[in-house]
Design a protein around this nucleic acid. Structure first.
Length: 569
RNA sequence: UCCGGGAUCGUUCAAUGGUAGGACCUCGGCCUUUGGUGCCGAUUAUAGGGGUUCGAAUCCUCUUCCCGGAACCA
């Protein structure tokens, strides 16, 4: 038997294989027509801090779902606590979402815009005998709530008349009572096994200035009395939040039901955790205030602004969010997954340049003094359209100290006394001698070059090593900031008794190189530009950069199999 | 202790009663004027016990472990 109605739902999105449990739920909604054929999500930040990579997961999820199903995603600020929220955060959140590449179009909302409606709904609850004004203090309220295995006690104010409740609630709004003296509570069940359902507070008195409503209100609705209703007002279909709100779902449902309003489906997923990272506003604040980092946008911070300043691309963050998937498993994602995403993206798009971090001067004794050759270098082997550029070559060059070893270990392909190495895009050179200062440090290398090795391999021998270099005359002086992970352990919160995450902070997470030498094409770089310093890593131009002295941040190093070999032996 | 979740390679996500698969990591190899990129190959997993079934990661049951919850925070 074929049910003809099966042709009903437009199942183009449905037909696609769901990629996570949320899409399965949406497919089911589409099939049953619970919300017609609409998919309307929202990203609901509280404007009380900066967004981090965990928020990016939620943003990508909500906006991504809307896009996949041809629906919409709103931006809504959950601004019901005037004591914590600020306009500054609203602006930074907007900027971060835009930078990540998502667009809420004209659908930017604020829960505070719904205060009047919420107030009316509170009146309805009172009129229906489902809410009451309670004079218990916050401590008394807690005592009445009971314990894990014991039911709570009824508030002595639970059975006030509707008229009295109406009168008191109006007077709460009119500012007749001081902060904390009264609350409006939902009348549910003080014996409910879920604490959330034991007559939860839905309005509290707060004589505080709100970043949008100013002093219009001195009572503010609680999250539980705001979030679901805001979803409802905006015709949200799937209200996606993190696992810790699972306990709140019965209350979310209760309000929608008792108010008789559009009832979205709350769905919870596991928040993102990353190795070598902490992910809470409180800890971020500690790191900023105690100067472990230089502000919220320090490249070591997992904030969106930190990732942005540190050179991460929005594409790589989006790919990362897609890659890690969505589930209810409490998981800790390996931070190398994130690093690999940015490597993958930048490998495809970042122009290659030569930069010497720890300069060691060499003189090529058999190269004519004063001669300069203009050698051609490929800008990006992954992208032919990126073209090529000129690299000036001369008698005196800088090499990286890492690329020379006085006593080479086995399998070391780079420069050593009497050994040969290829200079990238140039000649093969041989180290003839070293000059040392009185304390025995090598200050200069004397080399010779083989003029017959430009653009070709010698036939009589194999030279495996290739190293980068910069010509002394034309080198540009630059500052380079080498960022490393902020923590030394995978799980920074795992600490001995009496310690906290601060004991796992990596003391060497930032190394500043004041005088790196970079090739002349980097003379006039613009803030935000990204490059691959060949053999070293990906770097971007920091906002501290100035014309006379560019400043580069290391976004992420290149994969370094040699370093792995050294580490193992 | 009560309520709500969760448990699959080292990590993460799949497999929705029918061959446990991908990616990252790791380890080999090929290629390479980046010890980069790319390519090929390999190792490794269903928390435990019982049950249903021709057949169970999947359904039932008991156990263990982990996470969240008793803010007038969100």
């Amino acid at each position: 038997m074929v049910d003809e109605r099966e042709t009903g739902p437009d199942s183009s999105a449905l037909a696609e294989k769901p990629s996570n449990f949320i899409e399965e739920i949406i497919n089911e909604h589409l099939k049953t027509g619970r919300f017609g054929q609409n998919v309307h999500t929202r990203f609901p930040p509280e404007p009380n801090g900066y967004l981090h990579i965990g928020h990016a997961k939620s943003i990508a999820l909500n906006f991504g779902l809307a896009k996949k199903y041809g629906g919409l995603c709103n931006l809504r600020f959950d601004d019901t606590n005037p004591n914590k929220e600020e306009l500054e955060y609203v602006q930074s959140i907007e900027e971060d979402i835009k930078w990540l590449g998502y667009d809420w179009e004209d659908r930017e909302y604020f829960a505070s815009d719904y205060f009047e409606q919420l107030y009316d709904w509170a009146l309805k609850l009172i009129n229906d005998g489902l809410a009451y004004v309670c004079d218990l203090s916050s401590e008394e309220g807690r005592e009445h709530r009971g314990a894990l295995t014991e039911p709570g006690k009824h508030s002595p104010y639970r059975d006030r008349s509707i008229e009295e409740n109406l009168d008191l609630f109006k007077r709460m709004r009119d500012g007749e009572f001081p902060d904390g003296s009264r609350t409006l509570k939902a009348k549910i069940d003080m014996a409910h096994p879920n604490f959330i359902m034991r007559d939860p507070v839905i309005y509290r008195i707060l004589h505080a200035h709100h970043h949008r409503t100013g002093n219009a209100w001195c009572i503010y609705p609680m999250y539980d009395f705001t979030h679901g209703q805001s979803d409802s007002i905006e015709n949200i279909t799937q209200s996606i939040c993190t696992l810790e709100f699972e306990n709140h779902r019965p209350l979310y449902d209760w309000f929608c039901d008792k108010l008789g309003i559009h009832h979205p489906q709350q769905i919870e997923f596991a928040r993102l955790n990353l190795t070598y990272t902490v992910m809470s506003k409180r800890k971020f604040l500690t790191m900023v205030n105690e100067n472990y980092v230089n502000g919220w946008d320090d490249p070591r911070m997992p904030t969106i602004s930190g990732l942005r300043r540190g050179g991460y691309t929005p594409e790589s963050i989006r790919k990362f969010c897609e890659y890690i998937g969505v589930s209810k498993n409490n998981s800790i994602v390996d931070v190398t997954i994130l690093e690999n995403q940015v490597r993958e993206h930048l490998n495809a798009v970042a122009p290659r340049v030569l930069a010497v971090l720890n300069p060691l001067k060499i003189v090529i004794e058999n190269y004519p003094e004063g001669q300069v050759e203009e050698l051609s270098a490929i800008n990006n082997p992954e992208d032919e359209s990126a073209g090529s550029r000129i690299l000036p070559f001369s008698r005196e060059l800088y090499l990286d100290r890492n690329d020379f070893m006085e006593v080479p270990v086995k399998k070391y392909f780079r420069l050593a006394p009497g050994k040969e190495v290829r200079l990238r895009y140039a000649y093969i050179i041989k180290c003839e001698s070293m000059l040392k200062n009185e304390s025995g440090e090598i200050v200069e290398l004397r080399c010779t070059y083989d003029p017959d090795t430009l653009g070709k391999q010698p036939t009589d021998r194999r030279v495996r090593g290739v190293i980068h270099w910069v010509s002394v005359d034309t080198a540009v002086d630059a500052e380079v900031r080498l960022y490393d992970r902020l923590f030394t352990t995978e799980h920074p919160d795992k600490v001995e008794e009496g310690e906290d995450f601060r004991s796992n902070i990596n003391p060497d997470s930032l190394e500043i190189i004041e005088h790196a030498k970079v090739e002349p094409s980097l003379k006039s770089v613009k803030m935000g530009e990204r490059f691959q310093f060949e053999r070293l890593g990906y770097f971007n131009v920091d906002l501290d950069s100035r014309a006379e002295k560019p400043v580069f941040n290391r976004i992420v190093s290149l994969r370094d199999t040699w370093a792995n070999i050294v580490r193992r032996s």
